[in-house]
C-alpha cells in the first residue's frame, strides 16, 4: 500500500516536472501515429538484424533438451521441466531486454539515424515511447514463443509420461502461463529503467547499469531488511532510498511457487503488475524529460 502511495506521489511529481519541462508543449505532432511508426520500425529492424532470432533458437533448444532427461518420477520430471523452462524464459527474457533496450536510443545517437527522425514533427517523448513500445513488442513476441514451446513440451510430456500410483505428471499449465506473464512484467519494468539510463549514458554504461539494476531489483526484500536493521539514520536513509528507486523485480517472480506446485496468489501478481505499470509510467516520464534536454 505504501509502495502504491509512493508511486502515485512520484507520478504526480513527475507529471508536474514534465509539464514544466514542456514535454507536451509545443504543439502536438502526429501523436500516437508517430509513436506507433517508431515502434513498428524498431520491431522491423530487430527482425532484420536476426540476432534476436538466434537467441530464440538457442532458448528453444534449451527448452526442448529438457525432454530428453529421465527422472525418478513423473511429478519430479514435471517440476524440473517447469522450473528449468520458466528460468530459461525469465533469464533469457531479462538478458534480451538488456541487449535490446540498451541499444535502442544510444544506437540511434551513435549511428545518427535520430537526426532524420527528430527533424520531423516528432516530439522526443514520442520517440522515447516509440522505442520502448518497440522493445516491448519484440520481447512479448519472443517470450510468447518461448512460453508456447514450454506449454507444448509439458502437454507432450503429459501425454507420453506414464503416471505412477504415487506420482503423476502435472503440467500445471495455468500457473506456468501466469508465471511467464509475470516474468514479462519484470522484463517490461526493467526495460523502462534501461531506456531511462540509455537517455543519459552510452551503450556500454547502460548495459553495465542494467545488470546492476537487475541484481538489486531481484534482491529488493533484502534491501528492505537492511534498511529496517540499519543502525544509523544515514544508512537507513540510503537503503530506503535504494529500496524505492530500484524496480521491485522479485515481486514478479513466481517460479518457485509454480514449479513446486504451491498455491499461487493471482492477487499478488495483479498487485505487482499494477505497481510495475506505475513504475514504468514514472520511469518513462523521467526518461522523456532527460531526453528532451539531451543534445543529440
Amino acid at each position: 500500500m505504501g509502495q502504491l502511495a509512493f508511486g502515485i506521489g512520484l507520478l504526480v511529481a513527475i507529471v508536474v516536472l514534465a509539464i514544466t519541462h514542456r514535454l507536451w508543449a509545443p504543439a502536438m505532432g502526429h501523436g500516437g501515429a508517430s509513436t506507433w511508426r517508431i515502434a513498428k520500425i524498431t520491431v522491423a529492424e530487430a527482425r532484420r538484424r536476426r540476432v534476436v532470432q538466434a537467441v530464440v533458437v538457442l532458448v528453444l533448444l534449451i527448452l526442448l533438451s529438457m525432454t530428453v532427461f529421465s527422472y525418478l518420477n513423473p511429478r519430479e520430471q514435471a517440476r524440473m521441466i517447469i522450473s528449468g523452462g520458466l528460468s530459461a524464459i525469465t533469464v533469457f527474457g531479462i538478458l534480451l531486454a538488456i541487449f535490446v533496450a540498451a541499444f535502442l536510443i544510444p544506437q540511434e545517437l551513435e549511428t545518427r539515424t535520430v537526426y532524420a527522425v527528430l527533424s520531423k514533427p516528432v516530439r522526443r517523448f514520442e520517440f522515447v515511447l516509440g522505442k520502448y513500445l518497440g522493445a516491448l513488442i519484440i520481447l512479448a513476441a519472443i517470450m510468447t514463443i518461448m512460453t508456447v514451446v514450454l506449454v507444448a513440451v509439458l502437454l507432450v510430456m503429459d501425454h507420453f509420461v506414464p503416471d505412477l500410483t504415487y506420482s503423476t505428471f502435472e503440467p500445471n499449465l495455468a500457473n506456468v502461463v501466469f508465471a511467464a506473464v509475470m516474468s514479462y512484467f519484470a522484463v517490461a519494468v526493467l526495460s523502462a529503467y534501461i531506456v531511462l539510463i540509455s537517455t543519459v549514458s552510452s551503450t556500454a554504461m547502460t548495459v553495465i547499469a542494467s545488470f546492476i539494476i537487475w541484481a538489486i531489483g531481484s534482491l529488493q526484500s533484502q534491501i528492505h531488511d537492511l534498511a529496517a536493521g540499519a543502525e544509523t539514520v544515514s544508512t537507513k536513509w540510503f537503503f530506503t532510498m535504494f529500496y524505492w528507486l530500484v524496480p521491485p523485480l522479485e515481486n514478479f517472480d513466481f517460479r518457485h511457487e509454480v514449479s513446486n506446485f504451491m498455491q499461487v496468489s493471482y492477487k499478488a501478481g495483479i498487485d505487482a503488475a499494477g505497481v510495475g505499470i506505475l513504475y514504468i509510467i514514472v520511469v518513462l516520464l523521467v526518461a522523456s524529460v532527460f531526453f528532451n534536454d539531451r543534445q543529440v
Binding site: 520500425i41 529492424e45 532524420a116 514533427p121
Partner: peptide, 25 residues
C-alpha cells in the same frame, strides 16, 4: 516561429551529412 515549435518542422526538410538512415531497410 520559434524553432522548438513542432509545426515548423512540417515545413522543413533536412538532409543530414553522410546520409544516416536505417540501413537494413
Amino acid at each position: 516561429s520559434d524553432v522548438a515549435d513542432l509545426a515548423v518542422r512540417e515545413r522543413v526538410g533536412f538532409l543530414p551529412e553522410d546520409a544516416y538512415l536505417y540501413d537494413v531497410f
